[in-house]
Simulated assay, not measured.
Amino acid sequence: MASKKQIILPLAVLAGGIALAVAFSSLKTPPEQKPLQDTRPLVSTQSVQLDTLTLDVTSYGIVKAKDETVLIAQVGGQVIAVADQFVAGAFVKQGDILARIDANDYEADLIEAQAGLAQASSALEIERAQAHVAQAEWERIKSDSSDAIASELYLRKPQLAEKMARYRSAQASVKRAKRNLERTYIRAPYDAIIKQRDISLGSVVNQGSRLGELSATSVAHIRLPVADSELQYLPNGGLGANVTLSAQYAGKLTHWPATIIRSEGVIDAKSRMSYLVAQFSKPYSAPSQPLRFGSYVNASIEGRTISDAISVPHHLVKNNKIAVLNDNLTLSFKTLDIVREHNGRVIAQGGLVEGEQLITSALEYPSEGMAVKRDTPATTSDVTQLALKED
């Protein structure tokens, strides 16, 4: 038979193990309950606002005068006077005297021509009197003899024609001498700014010598290159379109309004661009600041307008589709009716509805129906919708 000690010892060990297990069990911390995690991609949105947009076309050009004239001497001689305003950059009015060529020889030519005219006039009057006498004599002879025939020479008609020709030649000589005398005055042909002067006091010029160059200040022209693909956005090919010119003047950005007056009608062989010509009146009398010749300007040509349109960044559109956020916080794609892609933006006239939410965030792998969350703190309803999706 087993001894009492052999029975009690195992029972005591078992009881101690149970007690120790119960003690450890009471000390164990229950596991924490983890909250439900929202793993949806975070997106930013922008509300769709349809509007009327103008499809402006941008260009650039150099401001030039409509008329530029090189002054050429029409008579020769020494320059005896130069006007103070005949310097580069000065403004002159139409008819202003810029320089004077020595006129002594031309004054003498005029006196000589006038003397020749007086002689020719006197000879003509004498010949007319002689012709009158010859005509009267012939009338007397004719009354005495009906068979008499008067010759042209007898009536002095050839002589009278000769004297008339000499008189007219003398008149032409006087006119030519007066014109040459007037040409000794170098005048401005229109209101202008002096671009260059090529003579000085005492210079000797010949007929055809260059005296200077000036530019008319009445009208400025700017040739604007436009790509052929851009012409579709301009009504009537751009003719008559309003243009806004902009450039830096005295360190400040300044704008001037102009108008497209014509197209050059050909494509440039080098640039493959069409050229429209903008016109601006009185560039040096502009209300804001003068539009100086030679300035480089940027131009915005007013294009046709489209209604119910939207402009979005180009990176949001792929394969003519754009991502929108649905009311149930899912992503879907809308196909756009693209009108134009320009300067990193896409202009569309159809495909979106006013008030829709565009997704403006960059998503790595967007897909139709993908669950997303707004770039705002999560709400109870958002978490509930997520839990239902996971269930």
Results as ranks from 00 to 15, higher is better:
47 S>M: 08
327 D>E: 13
92 V>P: 07
333 F>R: 04
305 T>A: 13
143 S>H: 08
358 L>F: 05
11 L>S: 12
222 I>D: 13
228 D>W: 09
185 Y>Q: 07
36 L>A: 06
99 A>F: 02
321 K>I: 05
137 E>R: 11
391 D>G: 07
41 P>M: 00
87 V>W: 10
125 E>M: 06
6 Q>W: 10
323 A>W: 01
275 Y>C: 09
364 E>W: 03
145 S>R: 15
303 G>T: 01
59 S>Q: 04
377 P>T: 12
16 G>A: 14
173 S>L: 04
283 P>Q: 13
371 A>D: 01
95 G>W: 03
148 A>H: 05
106 Y>E: 02
242 N>Y: 14
23 A>I: 12
355 G>K: 12
281 S>K: 12
84 D>V: 03
25 S>H: 04
358 L>E: 02
310 I>K: 01
285 S>H: 15
316 L>W: 06
163 K>Q: 04
56 D>Y: 08
317 V>R: 03
22 V>I: 15
263 S>E: 05
180 N>P: 03
21 A>R: 05
121 S>A: 13
323 A>P: 01
282 K>G: 12
46 Q>R: 05
134 A>H: 08
78 Q>W: 01
280 F>A: 15
7 I>D: 07
318 K>M: 06
380 T>K: 14
275 Y>P: 09
287 P>R: 09
68 E>M: 09
83 A>D: 09
101 I>Q: 00
3 S>Q: 13
156 R>D: 12
191 D>V: 10
304 R>Q: 11
298 N>D: 12
11 L>M: 12
163 K>P: 00
284 Y>A: 14
202 G>Q: 00
244 T>I: 14
197 R>D: 04
363 L>A: 01
186 I>T: 00
129 A>K: 13
283 P>Y: 09
98 L>R: 00
91 F>W: 09
176 R>W: 04
279 Q>D: 08
153 L>P: 02
71 L>D: 03
44 S>I: 02
245 L>R: 06
127 E>T: 10
109 D>T: 13
310 I>Q: 04
161 A>Q: 06
360 T>M: 04
264 E>C: 08
225 P>C: 10
352 L>H: 02
133 V>P: 09
73 A>C: 00
177 A>G: 02
366 P>V: 01
165 A>K: 08
314 H>S: 15
211 L>H: 00
141 I>E: 11
30 P>A: 14
168 R>Q: 07
97 I>N: 02
212 G>T: 03
318 K>L: 06
384 T>M: 15
254 T>M: 15
70 V>H: 06
93 K>P: 02
33 Q>F: 11
